[in-house]
Simulated scan of single mutants.
Amino acid sequence: MAVDANQRLLLAIIGLGIALFCLDLYLPLGIGNGVLYGGLVILSFLLPNRTGPVITAAICSVLAMADVILSPTLDGVPLWMGVTNRLFSLTAIWLPVLFFLHQRRAEDTLQRAHDDLEIRVRQRTQELADVNHALVEEIAERIETERSLRNSEAVLQANQQELRQSREELRALAGQLLTAQEEDRRRISRDLHDDINQRLAMLSMDLRQAEKGESSDAHSLRSTICLVSDRLTAISDDVRQMAYRFHPSILDDLGLVKAIRRQIDDFTARTGIKIAYVHRDPTTALPAEIAICLYRILQESLSNIVRHAHASQVEVELICEDDLVSLSVHDNGKGFDRAQLSQTGAHLGLLSMKERVRLAKGRFGINSTPSQGTHIHVEIPLTTGAPRA
Rank of each mutant, 00 (worst) to 15 (best):
V54K: 08
E107P: 01
F100R: 14
F99H: 07
P72S: 03
E127R: 13
W80L: 03
A106M: 12
L110P: 01
T73R: 15
R120P: 04
I69H: 14
A92H: 04
T56C: 12
N85H: 08
R124K: 11
R86Y: 02
P72M: 05
L117M: 10
C60W: 07
L101V: 11
F88D: 01
L87A: 09
G76I: 10
I119Q: 15
R124D: 09
A66Q: 06
R120Y: 05
M81C: 04
A64E: 12
S89I: 00
A64N: 14
P96M: 06
R122C: 00
Q123S: 04
D116S: 02
L90D: 00
R104C: 00
D115L: 09
H114Q: 14
L95V: 12
V83C: 05
V121D: 07
Q111I: 03
L63W: 10
E107A: 09
R86K: 15
L101K: 10
A66I: 04
A106K: 15
L110I: 04
T91S: 14
L79P: 07
C60G: 05
W80I: 00
D116Q: 12
T84L: 15
T73M: 15
L117K: 10
N85T: 03
L95R: 08
M65T: 02
C60V: 01
R105M: 05
T56E: 06
E127D: 11
T91R: 15
L117V: 04
Q111H: 06
